[in-house]
Design a protein around this nucleic acid. Structure first.
Lengths: 264, 264
DNA sequence: ACCTGAACACCGTTCAAGT
DNA sequence: ACCTGAACACCGTTCAAGT
């Protein structure tokens, strides 16, 4: 079926057994300028966006930058650190997003709305990168929901506390919000381009590998058209609004949202 | 700092440069009996639980089973398929869980409660495996939130439809439920053992690599004790109850939970 | 029928050497 | 100062060969 000796990456869309490698030329900046850490991380993100996470190797990233793999070690201590840097860079894109950066000038709900949509935009822009966010260990080990960028956490907490949340309520809100956000986006991204890329199966290979016996799942089959609808955007809005409503109640009651925890 | 030439897996806790490999001996069953696909998948899960996902290679799994790597290819078409099988096996553990298997005999809310807790138990039992669930492509491409096991989806949908949900409402509920469940558990698992294993840093290496400058994040620092509390269990219960309440309203109103979609 | 040896095309990473 | 060649210890996967 597949070409023999495809190496460690069965996900990459190589397929044809012609010339070696086929590294996509020229990094986005195009400039031949000196390498630095920022350029290496940027190239890694562009590479992952184009080729997928599994295709990223030190050697291929080097080739992508017109350099031998060993040269990268001057800017990045190793592959793991490269991936950490990629996650951090992607999340920090948020701070270049004018829609998000207005801070809490129109109230905390508006701020959380804009932040959530900003994160969603990033997740959809880099669907191959986003799963890394969930699997990398957090920057500060004791920040529980590991949203990676401490700038996020800091600005989130101050916005809510400045709006009248108690410290406990702000922390609880941070947990609920980040859990919803990462959870929803991880799922949304995992069902998007990640595997159903437009031009897969370039040869005449039949796409379905070994379709499991569907006759055991009559309801799933009957509701196929409903199940295959992509309502992610609407579901995101709805779940986000619901969350904000819950937080509003918490704020109004001036308590942390623990069950059975009336007043204080 | 670290031993040179540690190969492709900087996550594995090898460290000491003594005898080669140090594969944990003897698979759980202990039997020297014939290999088969089930035994291979079971060994893979046990291996990942002990050594972490990154440590799993075909060659090491072979050694773990007392066999050369090449022998595994008789039972598993390749590494990717192995990982798919691992995900499926772990999720299917649910059907051996007596607390879950009672089906909807005590109402749909009770069923969804038991299902959620069953999935949570599995996620916590296999924290190193669970992230795979989010990153593997779904079994049936058109089942949007990719909960992998079609048995799940089938039993979920029939339980709700039998309880009076419309087909649309059942599908919407499935999406909301699975999104919450995977999202929450992915986060919970990613902050647990996954990186803060008890006996790491066996040498005298200072644990904190390059602790980023915390002075820029005063609120995060001030609320450290609140942020580092692990309230996952309580948060899980609360979010789950909240979700079930929302679904109850949907059921009572006899409509799909779309915003602004009053009656029909 | 089931497993292995040897081989191939890759990996990440190091280090001395080149310019 | 920045990059490379060569080397080392690994990978996944194949296939003919052993038992």
């Amino acid at each position: 079926m597949t070409t023999p000796h495809e190496g460690a990456d069965p996900d990459s869309p190589e397929g044809r057994g012609g010339a070696a490698a086929a590294i996509p030329a020229a990094p986005p900046g195009g400039g031949r300028g000196a390498l630095d850490r920022r350029r290496v991380l940027g190239a890694a993100i562009a590479f992952i966006d184009q080729e997928g996470l599994n295709a990223l190797t030190m050697r291929r990233l080097g080739a992508y930058l017109g350099v031998e793999a060993m040269a990268l070690y001057r800017y990045v201590p190793g592959r793991e650190n490269l991936l950490d840097g990629v996650v951090e860079s992607v999340i920090d894109e948020l701070y270049g997003d004018p829609d998000v950066h207005l801070s809490a000038s129109h109230g905390w709900q508006d701020y959380l709305q804009r932040l959530a949509h900003g994160v969603r935009r990033i997740a959809l822009a880099h669907p191959e990168v986003f799963p890394l966010v969930a699997s990398r260990p957090p920057a500060a080990p004791w920040v529980r929901p590991p949203l990676r960028s401490l700038r996020w956490v800091e600005s989130f907490l101050t916005a809510l506390i400045d709006s009248g949340f108690t410290e406990e309520a702000a922390v609880a809100a941070y947990r609920a919000y980040s859990s919803f956000l990462l959870g929803h986006l991880l799922l949304e991204v995992s069902q998007k381009g990640v595997k159903i890329s437009p031009e897969d199966q370039p040869e005449g290979v039949p796409a379905t590998a070994a379709a499991t016996d569907l006759s055991e799942y009559p309801t799933v089959v009957r509701l196929e058209s409903l199940l295959s609808l992509d309502e992610s955007a609407a579901e995101f809005e709805e779940a986000l609004e619901n969350l904000l409503e819950r937080l509003e109640i918490v704020l109004a009651e001036g308590r942390t949202p623990r069950r059975g925890d009336r007043r204080r």
